[in-house]
Design a protein around this nucleic acid. Structure first.
Length: 280
DNA sequence: CAGAGGGAGCCACGTGGGAT
DNA sequence: ATCCCACGTGGCTCCCTCTG
């Protein structure tokens, strides 16, 4: 959000709104894939990777409805949504299949179409979808966890990357990696470095080997090295994206957009090229 | 004995989420 | 969109213990 040029200059509120939207999409994708697989279970035409927005919350019996589907991911965790799906006999299917099921003119279908063949086809379609959904709704919902629930042990912030980079650079220079050398490399006070590694030791052991002693020597594990290279890859990628669409913009400077207000950059203002609609 | 680690606590800051 | 509150995080201080 802070490195990507199309989002870094947006207002706090917009950034927050985008964060929430991304979070909700991840929750929705996780829930659907865990329960039904990565395609619409009725038609199999739409997948969760490319068409997540087309998946709708759908009731087998709308009389059970107690909440607004549009508020689900803003309001509830994945496991709570799973409970709602179970209690209210709801499912997520693609909007095409949803439309077939929500056919509110079913009872007057004979008055709409003249052709017996079409009437039969529409009715068959409706029953096919409804029967599939009744089977789906019996699927066990016990496996749903809450993958985005706040991790109370550790959150990766900018300074964490500073520590990892310092360790990585020190290892490249063949310097003993201790609290003292990390402090010197990162510019963070020795006591700050000390308490960081002390507090987070259990978690950090996944990425860093601790040779406890006087002094304690740190070393990145293979997983830690992969973590550092992945972080740096994405940072470079978003910082150096070509600005093809800004070719005539007066705020373009080489490979950087220096606009610092949304209305200075038409692409940021309109939301064009973002992977979502700002006003959705 | 100096330097390093262990551990508790304080404070500032950022973020998420609810209310309006 | 904005404000407010709760909470997590991390820098830092202080004191104690351990180690070479």
């Amino acid at each position: 959000m802070e490195s990507f040029r199309l989002t870094k200059n947006l207002s706090k509120a917009r950034k927050r709104s985008i964060r929430m939207r991304i979070k909700n999409r991840i929750k929705k994708k996780y829930l659907i894939e865990t329960l039904y697989g990565n395609k619409c279970l009725i038609c199999g035409e739409f997948n969760t990777k490319d068409h997540i927005r087309t998946f709708n919350f759908c009731y087998v019996d709308p009389r059970r409805k107690t909440c607004q589907a549009s508020d689900l991911f803003n309001t509830y965790t994945c496991s709570e949504i799973a409970d709602i799906l179970e209690k209210e006999k709801g499912v997520y299917i693609c909007s095409n299949c949803h439309t077939v099921l929500d056919m509110d003119y079913y009872d007057i279908i004979e008055d709409i179409y003249d052709s017996e063949e079409i009437i039969k086809k529409v009715k068959d379609d409706y029953h096919r979808v409804k029967n599939r959904i009744e089977k789906i709704s019996k699927i066990s919902l016990q496996n749903i966890k809450d993958p985005l629930t706040k991790n109370k042990i550790f959150a990766i912030r900018e300074n964490v990357i500073v520590y990892f980079n310092a360790i990585y650079e020190l290892s490249q220079e063949n310097i003993n990696i201790t609290n003292k050398s990390i402090s010197k490399k990162s510019g963070i006070d020795y006591s700050g470095v000390k308490s960081f590694f002390f507090r987070r030791r259990d978690f950090l052991k996944r990425y860093i080997n601790f040779d406890i002693g006087s002094p304690t020597i740190y070393k990145l594990t293979q997983k830690g090295e992969n973590f550092v290279s992945l972080i740096n890859y994405f940072r470079r990628h978003f910082q150096t994206l070509e600005l093809n669409e800004c070719v005539d913009c007066k705020y373009r400077r080489e490979n950087e957009c220096i606009a610092n207000k949304p209305d200075q950059c038409p692409f940021i203002k309109s939301g064009t090229h973002l992977p979502f609609d700002l006003d959705e």
